[in-house]
């Protein structure tokens, strides 16, 4: 009898340890993902979104806001800040539509991360900039047109 109880106990402890181990490993394996080469090399926005988020169906949302200049004097340095009040943010991506490769940059967010991402991007010409936020399995977007007087994509 005693032996049985001991066995049961040790089995339960074993499963717990495995569960804890798996729990510890999941967020890391998600975040340690490699650089999303396919998304960066896509020449269309939809391809890039499919490659990164697994979907290109986005819904316009007021809860995604962009802070960026209406007119950028220098296309080589365009500051962009994406903020969202959505909860459960999984990823944020920025696309400058008329760039040779629209997919500019993205952020993968894990449980402890927040809905804020700011960066400075290069823009070849005046173009709308689309910002995507994936939260709770759905994709939301906001866009803003940025005028560029001097392009900054090399050449």
């Amino acid at each position: 009898m005693k032996r049985r109880i001991f066995l049961k106990g040790s089995l339960a402890a074993g499963t717990l340890a495995v569960a804890a181990g798996a729990g510890m490993l999941t967020p890391k394996s998600v975040l340690a993902a490699a650089w999303p080469k396919a998304a960066f090399e896509s020449e269309t926005e939809a391809d890039a979104l499919n490659a990164f988020f697994g979907t290109s169906d986005a819904e316009q949302s007021d809860q995604v806001s962009i802070k960026a200049p209406l007119q950028a004097e220098n296309g080589a340095v365009v500051p962009i800040k994406v903020m969202t009040s959505l909860t459960g943010v999984e990823g944020i991506a920025i696309c400058a539509i008329k760039n040779p490769r629209p997919y500019t940059t993205s952020l993968r967010v894990s449980a402890g991360g927040g809905g804020l991402y700011s960066t400075r991007i290069k823009m070849g010409q005046t173009s709308p900039v689309h910002c995507y936020v994936k939260a709770g399995g759905k994709l939301y977007m906001a866009s803003q047109e940025i005028k560029v007087t001097v392009g900054g994509c090399g050449g």
Partner: peptide, 30 residues
């Protein structure tokens, strides 16, 4: 990669479309 107390909270993927000397901002609410 951004981590708080050794735990990764966010990973930014940058490409050629990001400006020289990148200035990246990320929220860490917790």
């Amino acid at each position: 990669e951004f981590s708080v107390n050794g735990e990764v909270v966010a990973q930014a993927n940058l490409g050629t479309g990001v400006s020289k000397n990148p200035l990246i901002g990320v929220g860490i609410p917790n």
